[in-house]
Design a binder for these strands. Structure first.
Length: 849
RNA sequence: GCCGAAGUGGCGGAACUGGCAGACGCGCGGGACUCAAAAUCCCGUCCUGGCAACAGGGUGUGGGUUCGAAUCCCACCUUCGGCACCA
């Protein structure tokens, strides 16, 4: 190897040390002299496997943008931290006895080293770790705030629980109950997803097809006492404020679907001989005349009261079976609907018809009232059920399509679209939307129903029966009261345990530590600590706020700093967090907004998702397939700059794309060429071609075109095309025997966000003594970009016949003349008169004959 | 089943707002340098026919709009991602 060759290992180490020693990327709080810009990465879970090549993709994109913004004069906040609570470290602890904190520390150290080796411009002084008591103190604090708040329905916002209006005349116990029932963090006995293998409860989102997302173990339904967060109160705002954020439409859509708003009516069905009614929710009140039976969820308490003696045995049996079914079974059996008749009847409020009441597990307890009216003619599920069990079908909506209408009328087709009302008494002939409105009013006037809105979104199941999570700052008194710790007692530190194993009965590991669980209060009363811990999502709900003020011991974050930095201007991460993390943190943010702790409605202004990187075989990377690419190896063999450049050159940021090691060599060769273009490899000094000289026109034009293209592409995250433009530039300049220094310098600056190490090194070789991180981004000159002469394509009837070169100033007539003058064109015209000549300046001429 | 994204050379991918399809990179073929190899440099590379000039075809499939379609419209096929009885 020659003395002055591109020695990326040395160069990269040198500049990483330089940046660290000089705190080059330290963000300045509240600096009013510059506009701020907050670039955030989704922080990683520090796993034992370390970084995979998917991580650096998003991190490189955000780093390029952060560096670009600095050069554009912004005060940039670009932090990194660790989402370090979670199952793997705990599983490892169960197996090996190693404290999760120790595993975590080791993994964090190794992943930090890996991330640092890529030369990202993070302000490392702001590093956070969710498992640090100094951090989770404030996670617990937010939880306490939720525990001590309620949701004011009229104002649609959270308020301190002390302000909750309490009805008069309640006993002390009832008063307490009333308050507890309104807390945003509350306890409930709920059927949960219990995973015996993991020994914990999982959130709905963590169960995939009846199996646990992690590990793929079976999950069953089981009622347990759990902590819940009332995210449903925020459903409407979570939906509405999506309009405010600059996110990919597909991600917004996923959230909208997850929230699942539907508008319809609640309708009351009386049960003869009973003094209570069955309420149902429907989005199709216009089909009420077609309701031929009702279905209740098997779990509904009401079922007991409705079931007649002769049907009791069958009903009880069915209910028992339904309760035993796991979600997987329920999904599997969804193909064939089952159910039993209760013996009870209800009265259809619109026509007084007596209709039978059934139970079936196709009706969900957790949505609406857990009861439905069944309109088999116009609901596919009811249609299937009615056919299965031979129940009557009455068509009440006539489709426009004649053929369809005939089938619907015969009861052979289930039609769920809009149409005209039939068999609906005085409402016959109305269109579906008209009917909906009229019948809703009709019901409301008679006190039989009301307009209603329902959401699919459920309250967030917030407790886990695990060790490695934030302990709840909650005490349980002997009389059943639930007390929040006072803020001064935070953090409630996770205690040491003998065994990390869950008890298997649902009791978390913390329950085994008697002297931690049992607490005597100053007044002598004895209480027990909550032994559940929070889910991994908790710490990531607000970490972007902690970066603003990571060392503050008195507050989670300073409000002046919050005002300055928030919102996050750019958030880059994987699309797999589209609903979970992004919905949860928006919820927490809105809650904090209500209480005045943050100044913006939404935390993340712009969101960009990086796509997945596949293995070289085009398959998802996995250990078992043996196609995992180790970033350490890539950095060792080709350097961090090559790695960064390749990850961006592969294709559009959001796309899924396969890795190709030869592609890495390709960009590496580009850097080599760039190096030799500037440095004489024999001496290590500047090449003789680098001179203080005037620039030829073509080079100057290409330089300015490149500055423009790279800048524009940076703004739109089109890093792949920015890199190809830089390659075009280097290909051109390498051929020049004189390479003006001023041209080289400008080029180094625009390359620097992509390949910062080599850029800094060359910048220094060019005689600069300061880092280029804060040099201003080169400007381009519009005039210099313009070509003097333009090649146009000449078509005859859309087929290319010739090319002509015209002056950039030529007007349409001149271009026409020149085009018609072409010999090839004359030949193609074969003497015919052109009907029309279309001239698109700087593009083409099309002669139509 | 429903929703969303995407289908372009041997491969990753370019193509502004409807205007030269295939930029840039990989791979491949040929050449230079070398005793030889690596590295590097130069030339070529969508397909078919032709020595060539050139002609024809070509952006998942089939139709349509237009002087002109990878780009817009309709129908369909395939792949990937998400949801999964939410009344």
């Amino acid at each position: 190897m020659k003395k002055g060759a591109y020695s990326f290992n040395k160069i990269e180490k040198k500049w990483q040390q330089f940046w660290q020693q000089n705190s080059t990327f330290k963000a300045q709080d509240c600096n009013a002299s510059k506009p701020k810009y907050y670039v955030l990465d989704m922080f990683p879970y520090p796993s034992a496997q370390g970084l995979h090549v998917g991580h650096p993709e998003g991190y490189t994109a955000s780093d390029i943008f952060a560096r670009y913004k600095r050069m554009k004069g912004f005060n940039v906040l670009h932090p990194m931290g660790w989402d370090a609570f979670g199952l793997p470290a705990e599983q490892y602890a169960v197996e090996s006895g190693t404290h999760p904190a120790e595993t975590t520390r080791k993994n964090v150290d190794s992943m930090r080293r890996q991330i640092m080796s890529l030369g990202f411009s993070y302000d490392w002084d702001r590093e956070v770790n969710t498992t640090d008591p100094g951090y989770y103190k404030w996670t617990q604090w937010v939880f306490l705030k939720m525990f001590n708040s309620y949701f004011d329905e009229t104002e649609q916002k959270a308020r301190p629980i002390e302000q909750l209006p309490i009805p008069d005349g309640l006993t002390e116990a009832a008063r307490q109950q009333y308050i507890d029932d309104h807390r945003l963090a509350y306890e409930a006995e709920v059927p949960v997803n219990w995973c015996p293998a993991l020994g914990t409860v999982l959130a709905n989102e963590e169960v995939v097809g009846g199996l646990s997302e992690r590990g793929g173990h079976p999950v069953i339904r089981k009622p347990m006492r759990q902590w819940m967060l009332r995210i449903t109160k925020y459903a409407e705002r979570l939906l509405e404020d999506l309009a405010e954020v600059d996110w990919p439409e597909s991600i917004k859509k996923l959230q909208i679907d997850w929230i699942g708003k539907s508008v319809g009516a609640d309708v009351k069905f009386e049960v003869p001989g009973c003094d209570w009614d069955i309420w149902i929710f429907t989005t199709r009140p216009d089909t009420l005349f077609g309701a031929t039976y009702m279905v209740l969820a098997p779990e509904l308490d009401l079922v007991d009261m409705i079931t007649t003696a002769e049907h009791k045995e069958a009903v009880d049996k069915y209910r028992e079976e339904a309760a035993r079914k796991s979600d997987l079974d329920r999904t599997d059996l969804a193909k064939e609907k089952t159910g039993v008749f209760t013996g009870g009847y209800a009265i259809n409020p619109v026509n007084g018809a007596k209709i039978p009441i059934w139970i079936s597990d196709y009706v969900l307890i957790s949505y609406g009232f857990g009861a439905i009216m069944a309109v088999p003619a116009h609901d596919t599920r009811d249609f299937e059920f009615a056919n299965e069990l031979n129940l009557p079908i009455i068509p009440v909506v006539e489709p426009e399509d004649k053929e369809q209408a005939d089938l619907v009328k015969k009861g052979e087709l289930c039609f769920v679209g809009d149409g005209r009302a039939i068999n609906s008494g005085q409402f016959d002939g109305l269109s579906t939307p008209e009917f909906k409105e009229q019948i809703t009013n009709w019901l409301a006037e008679r006190d039989l129903g009301r307009k209603a809105v329902n959401y699919k979104l459920r309250d967030w199941l917030f407790s886990r029966q695990r060790y490695w999570g934030e302990p709840f700052p909650i005490l349980h008194a002997e009389d059943g009261r639930v007390l929040g710790l006072s803020e001064e007692d935070l953090p409630l530190v996770l205690p040491e345990v003998q065994s990390y194993k869950p008890s298997g009965t649902g009791e978390p590991p913390l329950a085994n530590i008697d002297d931690w669980v049992n607490v005597t209060l100053p007044d002598g009363s004895r209480v027990k600590r909550e032994t559940n811990t929070m889910p991994q999502w908790a710490g990531s709900c607000w970490y972007y706020l902690r970066y603003l003020d990571p060392n503050n011991v008195d507050r989670g974050w300073d409000s002046e700093k919050e005002n300055y930095w928030m919102p996050v201007d750019l958030y880059i991460g994987g699309a797999e967090h589209a609903v979970l993390h992004l919905l949860y943190s928006r919820f927490w943010h809105k809650f904090l907004y209500d209480l005045g702790y943050v100044s913006t409605k939404e935390p993340f202004k712009k969101l960009v998702n990086q796509g997945m990187i596949l293995g070289e075989d085009g398959q998802k990377m996995s250990k078992s397939r043996g196609n995992v690419i180790n970033p350490d190896k890539v950095v060792a063999d080709y350097g961090a700059d090559s790695m960064r450049l390749y990850e961006m050159f592969m294709g559009p940021l959001e796309a899924t794309k396969p890795w190709n090691m030869q592609g890495v060599e390709g960009v590496h060769r580009f850097l080599q060429r760039l190096w030799r273009m500037i440095i004489d490899e024999d001496t290590g000094e500047l090449d003789g071609a680098i001179q203080e000289a005037d620039t030829d026109e073509a080079t100057l034009r290409l330089l300015h075109q490149t500055i423009k293209k790279v800048g524009d592409d940076n703004e739109s995250f089109g890093f792949n095309t920015a890199i190809s433009q830089m390659m075009i530039f280097v290909n051109h300049l390498t051929k020049q025997t004189v390479r003006p220094k001023s041209v080289i310098e400008k080029f180094i600056l625009i390359l620097s966000p992509f390949a910062p190490h080599i850029a800094e090194e060359l910048w220094e070789k060019l005689g600069h003594t300061e880092t280029l991180a804060y040099e201003s981004w080169p400007q381009y000159d519009k005039e210099l970009i313009k070509e003097k002469e333009i090649e146009l394509v000449v078509q005859v009837n859309g087929r290319i016949k010739d090319r002509i070169v015209v002056s950039a100033e030529a007007d349409e007539d001149q271009i026409k003349q020149q085009a018609l003058a072409s010999e090839k064109v004359t030949a193609a015209l074969a003497g015919k008169q052109p009907k029309k000549i279309i001239v698109i300046k700087s593009r083409l001429v099309n002669i139509v004959i």
